[in-house]
C-alpha cells in the first residue's frame, strides 16, 4: 500500500504491563499443614555479623607479610541480612497475587493515529491467527513450575503450587501443580496448565481483568536458609550492611519483589537466535534485546535484526511479517510493557 510508505513509528509509544504481580510474602510452616498456610508465621529478616576473610587481590604495597598479618588480625567484619525457616517448620510458603489486565497490544500512549491504526490491525491479525493462547500457556507453565521461587526452588524435595482464580474474595476455580514435575526448560505442560492458560488467554484478549491467587509450598527442611529479594542500594556509606533483604511492613515479613516475580513469569522466550557457541540456554525473560542481566549478555542483538524494535518496525512499517515464533516474542514484549517510541 502506498500509504504505508509514509508510515513512521510513533515517537511516543508506551504500553502498560499486563501481568502485574504483587510482592510475595514468605511464611513458614509444616508440609502437612498447608491448608492453614494463612495462619503460618511470616519469615523474619535477621541481621548477622560475618567475619569476612582477606581474599581480594592485595595491592603490591600491602603484600608486606607484617602488614598482611595485621590485616588478617583486623578481620573484615560485615553485617548481612539473612532469612531462614524456624527449626520446627520444614516448608516455605510463597504467596502473591497476579493481576492479568485486559487489552494486550493496546498502547497506553501513542501520538500517531496512522501508526495506532496499523498496530491495531496487526494485533488483530495476530489474535485471529494465533490468539494469546501460546503466550498464556507459557505464563501458566511458569506458575506451575515454580520458576518464580528462584533460588528457593533449588533445594526443595517437594513443591506444590496452588493457583486460585478469585473474584471479590471468592474462589471461582483452582488448580494444584506438582512443580518439580514441570520442566523449567520447556513449556509442554499438561491438562491443568492448558486450562489455566485458557483463563489467562481470555483475560489478555478480553476487557475484564483476572485475579489469580498463587501460593507455592516448597519443602526445604527445618532451619534451612530461604531467599527473599535483595535490595539494590547504590550509595552505601561505610559501616552499612553489605546485604539488605526485602521485607514488607516490618522486618518480621521477608518478601520477594514483584518485579522479580514478573521476570520469572515472562521467562518464555525460547525463540531467540542460537548463541554463537551453540549452547542452549533454555527460556530467557522477554526483553527487547533479549538481555539477561545476570549473564551480562543480550541474545537478540540489533545487528541480527531479531530484536524487538527491528521486528516490530518491519512488521508494521514494511509489512514483513515475522515468523510465528518472533510474532509471539513481539506480542510478549507488548504485554511486558515499556516505552518504545522512536523519538530519535
Amino acid at each position: 500500500m502506498a500509504k504505508n510508505d509514509a508510515l513512521k513509528t510513533a515517537s511516543v509509544l508506551a504500553f502498560e504491563r499486563k501481568l502485574d504481580p504483587s510482592d510475595a510474602v514468605l511464611r513458614a510452616g509444616r508440609w502437612a499443614d498447608r491448608e492453614q498456610h494463612a495462619q503460618w508465621l511470616a519469615v523474619p529478616v535477621r541481621e548477622k555479623s560475618v567475619r569476612g576473610t582477606i581474599s581480594n587481590r592485595l595491592k603490591t604495597k600491602d603484600q608486606d607479610p607484617a602488614k598482611l598479618d595485621a590485616a588478617i588480625e583486623n578481620p573484615n567484619l560485615q553485617t548481612v541480612d539473612v532469612a531462614a525457616l524456624p527449626h520446627d517448620a520444614d516448608t516455605l510458603a510463597v504467596h502473591f497475587t497476579l493481576r492479568v489486565l485486559a487489552g494486550a497490544g493496546i498502547p497506553s500512549a501513542c501520538n500517531n493515529a496512522d501508526y495506532q491504526d496499523k498496530l491495531k490491525q496487526t494485533v488483530a491479525g495476530y489474535v485471529s491467527e494465533h490468539g494469546f493462547g501460546e503466550l498464556a500457556h507459557r505464563y501458566a507453565c511458569n506458575l506451575a513450575n515454580g520458576r518464580f521461587l528462584w533460588r528457593n526452588r533449588l533445594k526443595a524435595d517437594e513443591i506444590e503450587i496452588v493457583v486460585s482464580q478469585t473474584k471479590a474474595g471468592k474462589v471461582e476455580q483452582q488448580w494444584t501443580f506438582n512443580a518439580l514435575a514441570h520442566s523449567l526448560r520447556d513449556f509442554q505442560g499438561n491438562e491443568e496448565t492448558r486450562e489455566l492458560g485458557q483463563v489467562i488467554d481470555a483475560a489478555l484478549a478480553g476487557d475484564d481483568y483476572l485475579l489469580l491467587d498463587v501460593v507455592a509450598f516448597a519443602r526445604i527442611g527445618g532451619g534451612q536458609e530461604v531467599f527473599p529479594s535483595q535490595e539494590l542500594i547504590l550509595e552505601r556509606t561505610r559501616g552499612d550492611k553489605s546485604k539488605t533483604l526485602y521485607y514488607i511492613g516490618n522486618k518480621d515479613n521477608a518478601a520477594i519483589h514483584s518485579q522479580k516475580l514478573g521476570n520469572a513469569l515472562r521467562t518464555i522466550d525460547t525463540w531467540y537466535p542460537a548463541a554463537d557457541d551453540g549452547a542452549d540456554l533454555g527460556p530467557i525473560a522477554v526483553e527487547p534485546y533479549g538481555s539477561v542481566t545476570t549473564q551480562g549478555a543480550a541474545y537478540r542483538q540489533p545487528k541480527e535484526k531479531k530484536d524487538f524494535y527491528n521486528l516490530l518496525d518491519r512488521w508494521l512499517l514494511k509489512d514483513e511479517t515475522p515468523s510465528a515464533a518472533n510474532q509471539h516474542f513481539v506480542m510478549a514484549t507488548l504485554i511486558r510493557g515499556g516505552v518504545f517510541g522512536d523519538a530519535g
Binding site: E231, L232, I233, L234, E235, T244, Y246, H257, Q259, A285, E287, P288, Y289, S291, V292, T293, Q295, G296, A297, A298, Q301, P302, D307
Partner: peptide, 13 residues
Amino acid sequence: AFHLTRNPAAKDG
C-alpha cells in the same frame, strides 16, 4: 537513599 530496581541490560548486555 532509594532502594532501586535493576533495569534490564542494554542491547550489548
